[in-house]
Design a protein around this nucleic acid. Structure first.
Lengths: 146, 146
DNA sequence: CCGCAATTTCCCACTTTCTCCCACAAGTGT
DNA sequence: ACACTTGTGGGAGAAAGTGGGAAATTGCGG
């Protein structure tokens, strides 16, 4: 169960340190990175990626239009990345661009996976969807109990 | 399982380098290239091509109109291509035209096959289908859980 | 049937990028 | 204060990506 919000710097070589709190939660030193929904990247432990991508591919032959879209947007950009000795991953150029990563990145632990945002992009996202968030909270109110 | 998104240049002789990450996933040095759906080319390892083309032919006698269409659009343009020492393939003139390839090409790994796009064509495709992608993602919400 | 031109194939060489490794600064706990 | 962990930067060597020339093949006209 990965949680926590961290801010680390992407260096000139495109390396990003995975916070040690998160590293402690994963086994092995390989992760899968891909484009997420909204302007961010998703980082999965390989076994969770397999589950997700299989169900995406399963729902979907390349002969239907929406399936191709999902495959191209989610599956295609996915790449295995390895943690180096210092616990960093290399973020491929194309993914940096896709998520608009500059220097300061946010790393969000969302239980089974991790999101990577550019700090500025994330701020923009939060403030522009504040209203929608309030609505969503109201709607869920009935469903969620604890 | 081939994945990853790469951008390489098609040179004046019509050669395109297959990224080494992808080369590492295929055995042998022969691939099958053909026209794909939407404005792109598909590249298969020979064994997957056999599976696909067999099932296309099987599903479809030449006496139905739609079957002939599929066969002419997908099967007919297919050609075997060989990787040279540097890991490049030669893309036949007719296929370059079909996919509108200029110089900068995108190479998308979609698990069992590879798509080749002209960079500009792909950008156009993505932005024009952004809305549909959002819909498709919402629909998946119900199906995919992990 | 032969020779020349155009195209393709093969190979080599250069440049850029990536990868691996090491070093250092700052912060934390003992 | 000292050892240790965490976060950051950079240099050297290796590999990936790119371009171009020479040899081989094809096709065409004489």
């Amino acid at each position: 169960m990965i949680t926590g919000q961290f801010q680390n710097a992407l260096d000139d070589k495109g390396r990003l340190l995975i916070p040690s709190r998160i590293r402690g939660e994963i086994t092995g030193n390989v992760l899968v990175i891909t484009r997420g929904l909204d302007r961010c990247l998703w980082l999965f432990p390989p076994e969770h990626w397999r589950t997700l991508s299989d169900s995406l591919m399963g729902a979907a032959s390349p002969f239907t239009r929406k399936a191709r879209l999902l495959q191209r947007r989610i599956i295609a950009p996915a790449q295995e990345v390895e943690l180096d000795k210092a616990g960093r991953i290399n973020i491929p150029q194309s993914l940096q661009v896709a998520a608009g990563l500059q220097r300061d990145c946010l790393i969000l632990g969302i239980k089974k996976y991790v999101e990577i945002w550019d700090v500025a992009e994330y701020d923009a996202y939060l403030s522009e969807s504040e209203e929608e968030f309030q609505e969503a909270a109201e709607e869920l109110g009935g469903l969620v109990s604890f």
